[in-house]
Structures are given as C-alpha cells and as structure tokens.
Amino acid sequence: MGFYLQAFITFFKIGLFTIGGGYAMIPLIETEIVEKKKWITHNEFIDLMAIAQSIPGVFAVNIAIFIGYRLRKIKGALSMSLGTVLPSFIIILAIALFFQQFKDNEIVQRIFMGIRPCVVALIAAPTFRMAKVTKINRYNIWIPIVSALLIWLLGFSPIYVIIIAGISGFVYGKFQRKSDAS
C-alpha cells in the first residue's frame, strides 16, 4: 500500500474516533502514528503539538497538516488533513440531510454517556507518558503544574501559556549560553 493511501486511511480512522474536541485526537495519534507506524518520535510529536496549538484554526487539522508536511511535504499534508476532515464531513452531512432528530435519540444518548468519561481518561493517560518523554523531574515539575493550574483554575488561554513558556525557554537558553561562554 502506498504511503499516501496509508496516511489517508490512518488519519481517517483517527478522525472517525476523535470524539469531543481536538485533544481527543492526541492519544489516537500517539498510538497510531508514534507507536505503531513510528512515523515520528515522541519528542517530534510534542514539538508539533506546540506549533499546532500556537497557530489559529482547528487543532486536529493543524496537527495532521504538520505531521503530513514533516513527512512528505504538501502531498503528505493534503492526504492526512483530508483523512482527518472527511469522516466528520460525511457524518455531519448525513445527519443534516437525513437525521435531524439524531441528538434526541435515546440510544445515541446512552452510548455517549458511556463514551464521554472514557474520552476524558484517554486524554489524561498520555499526560503521564508525555511527562516521561519530556524528562519532567522534581526540578521542572512545577512548569506543567503551574501551566495546568493557570488554564484550569484561572481560565488562562493556552496560547498565553505557550507564549510565556517559549519566551522563558529563549531567555533561559541565552543566559545558559552566556554562562557557558564565560
């Protein structure tokens, strides 16, 4: 199977199971793209997430575009983002055309009552794996904790957290190189 077809099918599968917003895509990409297919490494994935989160637009599509572009330039970006978008497009169109009463269906509601807590757990689990990959230790663990609390309790936009973290890294790097040089 050609690379582009494989890329399309993989992201189609990911798009099909991304329920409840872009973050739900992260555990799926981690399993399919990083661990099974080994197309990118964990660290590359985290860097791409940082970029995808810092630019506007649909987070899940941004990630697909960046991974695709990293691997096979524009054709890769096209096949992966098309795969991500197509399942939602088809399903929503089918609902709009034929099942306007979809959300009031009692069976659908029961199924989603089971899926929602499951998706929250799926997002919580990679947090710990990523902490290991990014080499979080007792000296820098305050960074993710403070970032999470700022967003969760004080309602900070993730954008600001990313900007502050990026600038801090830049300044810290400058000082470190200076002290290395002297």
Partner: peptide
C-alpha cells in the same frame, strides 16, 4: 532549540488542563 525546551514541559501542563477541564458534570 531553547524555545522548544521551554515549551515541552508547558505542553504537558496543557494536556493535563484539557483533561481537568473535561472532568465536569456534563461528562460525568
């Protein structure tokens, strides 16, 4: 490289915040 070194631990926090924000009565 330095910018991304600063970003990575914050991204872990972002992911944790996403999970925490979703732990609400709408989902549970």
């Amino acid at each position: 490289k330095a910018v991304f070194k600063g970003l990575r631990p914050a991204i872990v926090g972002l992911l944790a915040a996403a999970a925490l924000l979703l732990m609400n009565s709408e989902n549970f």
